[in-house]
């Protein structure tokens, strides 16, 4: 069986690379990267904008409610000024009274 020297074949390729291919490719890649960089910068700017808006809001809240906000729970005094149950019952129509007595019976007063 005859043998041959692989090294003797050389490193040449049977294909051709189109002229200016690498220069064109470089420009295309650089343009695509520039586009991605621009997009990233815009995203970073938006995030920075939101972050600074949130910080401003937090600082403003701190100034408006320096010791923390309170829940809007009515005080005992304001509740005591409400009309008494008897007063409310007196102003009810016969129909409303019927419903009220039914509910009272159902829930055991």
């Amino acid at each position: 069986m005859k043998d041959f020297d692989l090294e003797g074949l050389g490193r040449e390729m049977p294909y051709k690379m189109p002229e200016h291919f690498l220069d064109d490719m470089t420009e295309r890649v650089v343009a695509q990267i520039a586009k991605q960089q621009h997009k990233q910068h815009r995203e970073r700017r938006i995030i920075a904008l939101f972050a600074s808006a949130a910080s401003v809001a937090a600082v403003a809240l701190l100034f408006l409610h320096p010791f923390g906000g309170r829940l809007d729970i009515p005080s005992y005094e304001s509740i005591s000024q409400c009309a008494s149950v008897d007063e409310v019952l007196q102003n009810m129509t016969a129909e409303e009274l019927g419903v009220y007595s039914m509910m009272s019976n159902y829930y055991g007063n």
């Binding site: 390729m13 294909y15 690379m17 189109p18 291919f21 690498l22 490719m25 470089t26 650089v30 990267i33």
Partner: peptide, 27 residues
């Protein structure tokens, strides 16, 4: 980055192209 990419393409663009081409065959 742009400068780096240009330098990579200048230095390694051709060997990388042929490495890929030998694997995938079609230009």
């Amino acid at each position: 980055v742009e400068e780096a990419v240009r330098l990579i393409m200048k230095k390694y663009g051709e060997p990388l192209y042929w490495h890929i081409r030998r694997m995938v065959v079609a230009h």
